[in-house]
C-alpha cells in the first residue's frame, strides 16, 4: 500500500484520466446550447436592444424636442443592434482568439 501524498495524487490523476473525468479547460464553462436556450437568448437579445434603442430615442426626443425623428432613427438602430447581438451569439467577437 503506497500512502505518500504524491503517489496518491498521481494515481488519482491517472484514474481520472482513465474515466475521462478531466475535461480540457477550454471546454469548461460554455453556455448551455440547447435549441430552446438559444432561441430564448436570441429573443431576449433582440428585445433588449430594441428597448435600449426606443428608450434612447424617446429620451433624446424629449430633451431636444425633435419628436418623432430621433425616435425613428434609434428604433432602426435598436433593430440593427438586435441583429448584431444575435450575430454575436453565434460568432463571439473575441472567441476565435483565446489567449
Amino acid at each position: 500500500m503506497v500512502d505518500d501524498g504524491k503517489a496518491f495524487s498521481q494515481r488519482l490523476a491517472e484514474a481520472r484520466a482513465k474515466q475521462g473525468l478531466d475535461r480540457p479547460v477550454g471546454e469548461r464553462g460554455r453556455l448551455p446550447s440547447g435549441p430552446w436556450g438559444i432561441g430564448f437568448r436570441a429573443g431576449v437579445e433582440v428585445v433588449s436592444a430594441l428597448i435600449v434603442g426606443v428608450g434612447l430615442g424617446l429620451l433624446l426626443d424629449r430633451w431636444l424636442g425633435t419628436w418623432p425623428w430621433l425616435f425613428l432613427v434609434f428604433f432602426v438602430l435598436g433593430a440593427a443592434a438586435g441583429v448584431l447581438n444575435v450575430h454575436r451569439l453565434f460568432h463571439p467577437r473575441f472567441g476565435a482568439r483565446k489567449d
Binding site: E45, V47, A49, I51, V52, L56, F74, L77, A81, L84
Partner: peptide
C-alpha cells in the same frame, strides 16, 4: 458606432430580462 453603442447598452437589459 451608434449600433455598437446601443448593442453595448443592451447588455444589462438582456442580462436582467433573461
Amino acid at each position: 458606432i451608434p449600433v455598437e453603442i446601443v448593442s453595448y447598452l443592451s447588455r444589462p437589459i438582456s442580462l436582467s430580462i433573461r
